[in-house]
């Protein structure tokens, strides 16, 4: 079987060059965007795009195994891990544009240009000839050949790397582990806390509306204001549905805050947003 894209020897030159140039410009643009994007999630997505383009390039160069490993392991596992941690840390934690350290950007820019120039000189000096004639190792027999290499020439690094992986997993577990400083509250302790805390009833659950992701949607109190307590504290920090909550608050009649509840924040009147629950509420009142 021939894989026109994978087999370098037989692939058409123009196919290769078009593919290369498109992917190259795309990856460079994505990398630049990654460095310049403000929101961290955007950076993660752009990095995923770069990794995928790189996987295609591996494939073009006759490394199918690596291409798949890149997609599965790197993009699929490592980058997702990044996204999980982003969610924990705070999706909206955006960098401000102003730079706190004087001269850092200028120096970084200059250093970057300097490194670019130097490495270009290095690469230019080196005599990099044309690709070697590809054999089956760069195509169908790639997996077998790599396996042969790993388990013969590179078996020792392989074993060491496996030890490294185990150690990394253990390290992650240890680092993420939270040591309890006080004994774990039993059910009795929790119920005592609840009874004496002024809120015997459980917290209200989130509201569910057709257009929005349920978990971060606040429930509505009888007077029409959003129940802050119904949204998990973590999400409250992120305020993904900030617009919705602000809209709700704008329509609500201000009441004295309930026990333990902080007054709803953000009087950013966005009266234009009459979609969904606001309209429903207004509709109900007008009836």
């Amino acid at each position: 079987m021939t894989h026109p894209v994978v087999l370098a020897a037989g692939a058409a030159a123009t196919t290769q060059s078009i593919a290369f140039w498109v992917l190259a410009i795309g990856s460079v643009g994505a990398a630049l965007g990654m460095v310049l994007a403000r929101k961290a999630v955007h950076c993660a997505m752009l990095l995923a795009f770069v990794m995928l383009t790189l996987a295609i390039m591996y494939a073009m160069q006759g490394a199918p195994f690596l291409a798949f490993v890149q997609v599965i392991v790197y993009t699929g596992a490592v980058l997702m891990l990044f996204l999980f941690v982003l969610m924990i840390v705070g999706v909206t934690s955006a960098d401000s544009v102003t730079e706190t350290i004087k001269g850092q950007r200028l120096a970084a820019g200059l250093a970057g240009i300097g490194l670019l120039v130097l490495l270009s000189l290095v690469v230019g000096q080196a005599v990099i000839g044309p690709a070697a004639p590809g054999g089956p190792n760069f195509g169908s027999a790639n997996v077998g050949a790599i396996a042969a290499l790993i388990f013969t020439t590179y078996v020792f690094p392989f074993e060491v790397t496996s030890a490294l992986l185990i150690t990394a997993a253990l390290g992650a577990m240890v680092l993420a582990h939270r040591e309890r400083t006080s004994p774990r509250p039993t059910q009795r302790d929790l119920s005592i806390r609840r009874m004496t805390g002024g809120r015997p009833a459980p917290l209200p659950g989130p509201g569910t509306y057709a257009r929005h992701n349920a978990v971060d949607m606040p429930a509505m109190l009888p007077d029409g204001s959003a129940a802050r307590l119904s949204v998990s504290a973590v999400m409250g920090v992120r305020a993904v549905s900030g617009i919705t909550i602000a809209g709700l608050d704008e329509l609500a009649v201000p009441q004295a805050p309930a026990l333990g509840e902080t007054p709803a924040a953000g009087d950013t009147g966005d009266t234009g947003d009459t979609s969904g629950p606001a309209a429903g509420t207004g509709g109900q009142e007008e009836r």
């Binding site: 300097g114 490194l115 290095v122």
Partner: peptide
Amino acid sequence: VRSYALSMFVGAVLLVGALL
């Protein structure tokens, strides 16, 4: 940390230049 990283980077650039 970033200024330290900058100095390391500049040092590495200089090293590459020296090797060149």
